[in-house]
Design a protein around this nucleic acid. Sequence first.
DNA 1: ATTATACTCACCACATTAGGGGATAGCTGT
DNA 2: ACAGCTATCCCCTAATGTGGTGAGTATAAT
Lengths: 215, 215
Amino acid sequence: MSIRVAIFDDNKNIRSSVIMLLNTDPDFEVVGTFSDAKHCVDNVLTSRPDVVLMDIEMPGINGIEAVRILTREFPHVPILIQTVFEDDERVFDSICAGAAGYLLKNQLNSSLTEAIKELKTGGSPMSPSIARKVLQLLQSSGERSRRKPSEEYNLTPREKEVLSAIVNGLSYKMIAYELNISYETVRSHIKKIYEKLHVASLTEVVAKAINQNIV
Amino acid sequence: MSIRVAIFDDNKNIRSSVIMLLNTDPDFEVVGTFSDAKHCVDNVLTSRPDVVLMDIEMPGINGIEAVRILTREFPHVPILIQTVFEDDERVFDSICAGAAGYLLKNQLNSSLTEAIKELKTGGSPMSPSIARKVLQLLQSSGERSRRKPSEEYNLTPREKEVLSAIVNGLSYKMIAYELNISYETVRSHIKKIYEKLHVASLTEVVAKAINQNIV
DNA sequence: ATTATACTCACCACATTAGGGGATAGCTGT
DNA sequence: ACAGCTATCCCCTAATGTGGTGAGTATAAT
């Protein structure tokens, strides 16, 4: 059974050249070509593609927004971005919008058919330079978010509980109630936490705790 | 000029089969094979490879740790992970450690030479399923870290200034001093902020501000 | 001209937190 | 047995934050 492909691209030449390329291969069937994404949901609904090819720069709704919409409506239809842009911003936005692949147009012909097949089998085809960029983005985002408790601050388990409660916005009284200890004990713990984190107010504690995710 | 390749893998059979594979292609030159990463820095220093192939499970230092070390010492030598693991944890760690590519071993032969060439030209070869996983990781990390001011909360510029000051741990008095307004005005702004963020305490404000990075 | 919004300031009453003490009991490791 | 740490509790004073109410000015929008 052939792979049903829908194409969104405002450039007529590109549309027809992609169609031609795919028609030479019996594995593919172009079930829809659209010059903008204004009615992308309806378009996908009626043409029922297995995969979608999406341009970024289009009149009206841009491709990234369309990806966002389509992945929400049709989570099982992988979308391949095909564009000339390779700035971090757009690459990142596309991925976050839910794109399953990202191909640069300058090397479209050479690998498009292969990429679509890969998409269909659960892969994520990317142009080499895009792949590198994606890894770098992941690295930088990873350094931030899961930086180990580099400085552990030597918080005791109990202190961490209290800290966590504070970050969740509980007052001392509520914490005392939650942990089944007295108000004064909560205060003691918090004093210790202040010392250990080298801060002098609740807001600083919260900020530090979140930023260095000690919680 | 051929591509100089160093191999780290504790499995003798894999080492020799990779060597054999690469030797059939004049584009490659295997300049070092090592059964563990204990002396990886020295190994790379003396063998001077253009790219490194790295296994994950190895005695002593594991491959991910080795990647971390090597990318710090030799930022310009791309490292290709080749392993049987494809759990999120290890994939993510490898990428964050600085790996430039990630190939599953079950499809090694078919694409290894191609992958190494891609590495050398700035690409990041990944097995299809890994690529998909990487995109998903980036999506999920992206949703957290740069969620747009999806709900802007309609904070006025002044309120944002105050908010930012709070998050930095300043007290009302200090904020008043910094912004050259009275203590009472600071309080007014903060009351508004409470309303707009639907919270009822400073700590909640800080937590919400940081988590949805309104600051 | 009227409405709306942002920014400013003030007063009161009450609740909570900060910062300084000091104290007891249990557990760990030496 | 002792030192060191954790966890628990208590008191007091001063400072800060919370909640409610009201109000003046300037600026922009309708």
